Simulated scan of single mutants.
Amino acid sequence: MDKLAMTEAIMAKKAEKGLTWEGIANEIGCSPVWLTSACLGMNSASAEKAAAIAEYLELSCEVAEALTAFPTKVWDQVVPTDPLVYRLYEIMGVYGGTLKEVIQEKFGDGIMSAIDFTMEVDKVEDPKGDRVVLTMSGKFLPYKSW
């Protein structure tokens, strides 16, 4: 089973059972953001986590095996049209250079890891309209001179 078929099986079972990513993550003991990414094929799971996901969703061992496979992290290189994804793309287009400048001013010449990385999505209720809070935390990786 490839990652695409795995994702389709997971999404169908999630919808059939009326589950949420947060609910599944709470049951198997992991971050909802990481779980979602793994189930969408962009990260791999340990054999133990993959088995727990497949068991909880009542899916086959082929799904568990696909969850453990190392992903090829490729995505569309065109501007996304989904409004939520586009807004994040727009934020990087407008503030990407600013973030780079501020991070490098504080840390030096380097990058933020997307491997040693965590992300949380939170909701803050507000009478003017609820707020989305994205928290990204990545290890700073300085460039080496040699």
Score class of each variant (00 low, 15 high):
Lys3Phe: 05
Leu4Gly: 11
Ala5Gln: 08
Thr7Trp: 00
Thr7Glu: 05
Glu8Ser: 13
Glu8Gln: 09
Ala9Lys: 09
Ala9His: 11
Met11Thr: 15
Met11Tyr: 07
Lys13Ser: 05
Lys13Gln: 13
Lys14Trp: 01
Lys14Tyr: 01
Lys14Arg: 13
Ala15Asn: 14
Glu16Trp: 00
Glu16Ala: 14
Glu16Tyr: 08
Glu16Pro: 14
Lys17Cys: 09
Lys17Phe: 05
Leu19Ser: 04
Leu19Trp: 13
Leu19Val: 07
Gly23Glu: 00
Asn26Asp: 11
Asn26Thr: 07
Cys30Trp: 01
Cys30Gly: 05
Ser31His: 04
Ser31Trp: 00
Pro32Arg: 01
Thr36Ile: 06
Thr36Tyr: 14
Ser37Met: 13
Leu40Arg: 09
Gly41His: 00
Gly41Cys: 05
Gly41Trp: 06
Met42Ile: 10
Asn43Thr: 12
Ala47Met: 04
Ala47Lys: 08
Glu48Lys: 11
Lys49Ser: 07
Ala50Thr: 08
Ala50Leu: 06
Ala50Glu: 01
Ala51Tyr: 03
Ala52Asp: 07
Ala54Pro: 01
Glu55Pro: 11
Glu55Thr: 15
Tyr56Pro: 02
Tyr56Thr: 08
Glu58Arg: 09
Glu58Leu: 09
Leu59Thr: 09
Ser60Gly: 07
Ser60His: 03
Ser60Pro: 05
Glu62Tyr: 11
Glu62Asn: 11
Ala64Thr: 06
Glu65Ser: 07
Ala66Gly: 07
Ala66Ser: 09
Thr68Val: 04
Ala69Phe: 13
Phe70Met: 12
Pro71Ala: 03
Thr72Gln: 11
Lys73Tyr: 08
Lys73Met: 12
Lys73Ile: 10
Lys73Glu: 13
Lys73Gly: 09
Lys73Asp: 12
Val74Ser: 11
Val74Trp: 04
Trp75Ile: 14
Gln77Met: 10
Gln77Arg: 14
Val78Thr: 13
Val79Trp: 07
Pro83Ala: 06
Pro83Leu: 06
Leu84Arg: 12
Val85Asp: 14
Arg87Ile: 03
Arg87Val: 03
Leu88Phe: 11
Leu88Arg: 05
Tyr89His: 14
Glu90Gln: 08
Gly93Pro: 05
Val94Phe: 06
Val94Arg: 05
Val94Thr: 12
Tyr95Ser: 02
Gly96Cys: 03
Thr98Arg: 10
Lys100Tyr: 12
Glu101Ser: 14
Val102Ile: 15
Ile103Gln: 10
Gln104Cys: 03
Asp109Arg: 15
Gly110Gln: 06
Gly110Arg: 07
Gly110His: 04
Gly110Trp: 10
Ile111Trp: 06
Ile111Cys: 09
Met112Asp: 06
Ser113Cys: 04
Ser113Asp: 00
Ala114Ile: 14
Asp116Ala: 10
Glu120Thr: 03
Val121Ser: 07
Asp122Ala: 13
Lys123Arg: 10
Asp126His: 02
Pro127Leu: 07
Lys128Ile: 12
Lys128Leu: 06
Arg131Gly: 05
Leu134Thr: 05
Met136Gln: 13
Ser137Cys: 15
Ser137Leu: 11
Gly138Met: 01
Gly138Tyr: 00
Lys139Glu: 04
Lys139His: 06
Lys139Cys: 09
Leu141Glu: 04
Pro142Gly: 08
Pro142His: 02
Tyr143Lys: 15
Tyr143Arg: 15
Lys144Gly: 07
Lys144His: 09
Trp146Glu: 14
Trp146Pro: 10
Trp146Asn: 15
